[in-house]
Simulated scan of single mutants.
Amino acid sequence: MSDIKLHPSLDNGLSPVASNFTGGTLQCLCTANKVEVTISAQTLHNHACGCSKCWKPAGATFAVIAVAPREKVSVTAPADKLAIVDEHAAIQRHACTECSAHLYGRIGNKDHAFYGLDFVHTELSPQAGWSAPGFAAFVSSIIETGTPPQEMKAIRARLRSIGVEPYDCLSPDLMDVLATQVAKLRGVVQPK
């Protein structure tokens, strides 16, 4: 099963999380004049993602995405190299215009349940200690990007073998957050 390649940060097992980790930087893949994004907090809800929108390093089947509070994420070196990949997407993914690596994604819709959280690719960080992926989301979507359907059972087994539970949506806790936000917007549940 270990011959199944998921993502470089998953294939050799999950890296340990540093208990006192307070953040670091992300850097694009350019050899010079790298875009740098500083995250001044530990990340939350790290996960493998099989959707077709998330950036994946070369050869990876899944993306690995975490979130951090928006106010803890800032571009610290050259912001003019970043561009939004799809202006119409719910998550405005900011990528380097030279190497195409996605550094962070931001939600602009204040009514979205994840507004205030930025999506980040900690595999682009030279620092160790970031939160480890806790689940895999949109696993079936890797079929849409070329994975043969007959490989799905083995891929789900491989994810479970490294401690990453596969889902075809988000984790149950995050799906509850999304549903709660919809209920609040409809007036079914009162905001706390």
Rank of each mutant, 00 (worst) to 15 (best):
M152E: 05
S141A: 14
F138G: 04
H45T: 01
Y104V: 08
A113Q: 08
K53L: 13
L117T: 09
A79P: 07
L117D: 10
A48T: 07
H45F: 13
H102Y: 09
P57S: 01
E71R: 00
F114T: 03
H47C: 02
C99Y: 08
A41I: 04
H102Q: 13
E123T: 02
R160F: 03
F138H: 11
A137H: 06
S141F: 08
D86L: 05
I155S: 02
A132R: 12
F135N: 09
K53M: 11
A113I: 09
G129M: 06
R70G: 02
A113W: 11
H102N: 13
V64S: 10
V139P: 07
A157T: 11
V64R: 00
A128K: 11
C49V: 04
F119A: 15
A136R: 00
I65W: 07
H112W: 12
V139R: 01
H45G: 01
G50H: 00
A136V: 06
A66H: 00
A68R: 03
A58F: 05
Y104K: 05
V139N: 01
A48N: 05
A157H: 10
A83S: 15
F138S: 02
A60V: 08
N33A: 14
K56W: 09
A83E: 15
C51D: 14
F138I: 00
Y115R: 08
K72I: 00
Q42R: 11
E151A: 13
Q42A: 12
T61N: 02
P78I: 03
K53S: 13
T97H: 04
A89Y: 08
C54R: 05
S125E: 08
G134T: 11
C51T: 06
M152S: 01
V139Q: 03
K53C: 06
D80H: 12
F114N: 09
K81Q: 11
V73P: 08
Y104R: 04
